[in-house]
Design a protein around this nucleic acid. Sequence first.
RNA 1: GGGCAGGUACCCAAGCGGCCAAAGGGGGCAGACUGUAAAUCUGCUGGCUUUGCCUUCGAAGGUUCGAAUCCUUCCCUGCCCA
Length: 403
Amino acid sequence: MPRESIDSRIARIRKGAVSLETEAELAARLREGRPLRVKLGADPSAPDLHLGHTVVLSKLRAFQDMGHEVVFIIGDFTARIGDPSGRSKTRPQLSRDEVERNAETYTAQVFRILDPGRTRVVSNSAWLDPLRFEDLIRLASTVTVAQMLQRDDYASRYAAGVPISLHEFLYPLAQAYDSIRIEADVEIGGTDQTFNLLLARELQRAFGQRPQVIMTMPLLVGLDGVEKMSKSLGNHVGITEPAFEIFGKLMSISDDLMPRYVELLTDLDFDDLRSRLGHPMEIKMALAGEIVRRFHGDEAARSARENFTIAYSRKGIPDDGDWVREIALPPGSHWLPQVMKDCGLAASTSEARRLMRQGAVRIDDVKVTDEQAVLEIGEGDRDRKILRVGRKKIARIGARPTA
RNA sequence: GGGCAGGUACCCAAGCGGCCAAAGGGGGCAGACUGUAAAUCUGCUGGCUUUGCCUUCGAAGGUUCGAAUCCUUCCCUGCCCA
């Protein structure tokens, strides 16, 4: 790597970050000229990564590209505690089996962004399992209850009379202890991690270590434009989702959200896009295309855009298999609501009936509102029907070949 | 340990013997509008081939022709006091 000034490297590192504590400490460590140990802790309670996670991961990748090492800590132990960060409710505690399974898919997904060659993967149960009660007391004695209650999610829950379990106080301690064990140089997290990150600094000091440099990244707002992106709120875009799904979801964000998404999720420049493309829809398509490209490649990005236009702008039927689910039924008559339920186009026959009543259901582009409607499936492959529920769900129904 | 207040559908929250599948709001879904959207307006929002039936109001029992509503026990939560 060509020599780059410390200042310039710091500028690259802190791009997009909300805070960096402290820049002087970071400069000092960079000056040492060794690969820094950058900590990433992951709580494998929700194994699927979404775009929100990629904000921090991309930053870690940037560190790797500068020659630093990422220590990826699987919080297999802490997952069993349940992190309360940024939540008004306690996270469910997971069983060992669940955690193990989750950790596996999680790791696989993380390497879509991180460089495996510069990543060390460890599990924090390695040191937290054998910890003795005595050790725990020593850890706990370094923090006061008042300090704990500074943290917003504890404070607001406490004020609102929402229960806080004692074990939740142990979570930040465990996370901080991880930093001590791996002697982290740097830790990065979302702004919701600020408290935990700061606490790790204090504990490191108490244990005679140099406190880690910490950097926080903005939380990505979810598709609803209000809450932070999270799987449990259903406002997320998973990085393993099919291309058309990612594209479609991104197209559904409000215009106001676009600049932030462009900034946090791509290397594109929003102002540049705006001056080149003009129309908000074009900009959004560029954003959606870029993100699809990142996880599925150029071809998928092009196809997603094309099919999206066909399906929604022109209300046609896209060619791509992903966009249209293929359904095979035995020849004969089928009660439509039952078909919709069986094919996942409606959650129940009751819902299917409702959708029909509301004019959301079309067969071959003809609206069907009669709840008693019957779908006739003829023999052979000729007679295929297009069933459309709302605008997003499209299925092509044909006869199941008789075996 | 004592006192008090609570636990209602995805979330918040009304209901306090029948008119309750349960008000209202949020969220979600659909339709209209549009530039994909957002905003706005309208409708829907437990299940079941549905003028009816079945399951639901922390759990289990009980009273009653009839219970989310009354009684008993239990479980859970918050507040105050110790």
